[in-house]
């Protein structure tokens, strides 16, 4: 009986340790997801990219007067994803 108990102990210990870590990781993932959805789920620069017009406004003060004519069309500015294709 004593031998059986001794044999079972490492497995129980390993299981307990894994359970503790899994619980902590699960709680952490839930908290981080909550933090993301509460404060960071609407980034101004999704995928590290935003409209060059907004950047231009920040850097130069305001979009250039004839921004719509050159060097790219104003209609493209609503989405930052397409600008590289113009290069």
């Amino acid at each position: 009986m004593r031998t059986l108990k001794a044999l079972a102990r490492p497995q129980v210990s390993q299981f307990r340790f894994a359970l503790e870590l899994t619980t902590v990781v699960a709680i952490k993932a839930a908290l981080l997801y909550w933090a993301w959805s509460a404060w960071f789920s609407h980034p101004l620069a999704p995928h590290m990219r935003m409209s060059p017009a907004l950047v231009q406004q920040q850097i130069l003060g305001a979009p250039a007067a004839n921004f719509a004519s050159a060097p790219f069309a104003a209609s493209d500015l609503s989405s930052g994803e397409n600008h590289d294709s113009r290069r």
Binding site: H42, P43, L44, V55
Partner: peptide, 19 residues
């Protein structure tokens, strides 16, 4: 990972610049 969250939200212009 929260640093990456902050890139897009708190540091959007930086994020665009270095993306």
């Amino acid at each position: 990972i929260t640093l990456e969250f902050q890139f897009g939200t708190n540091w959007a212009y930086y994020s665009h610049y270095v993306g």
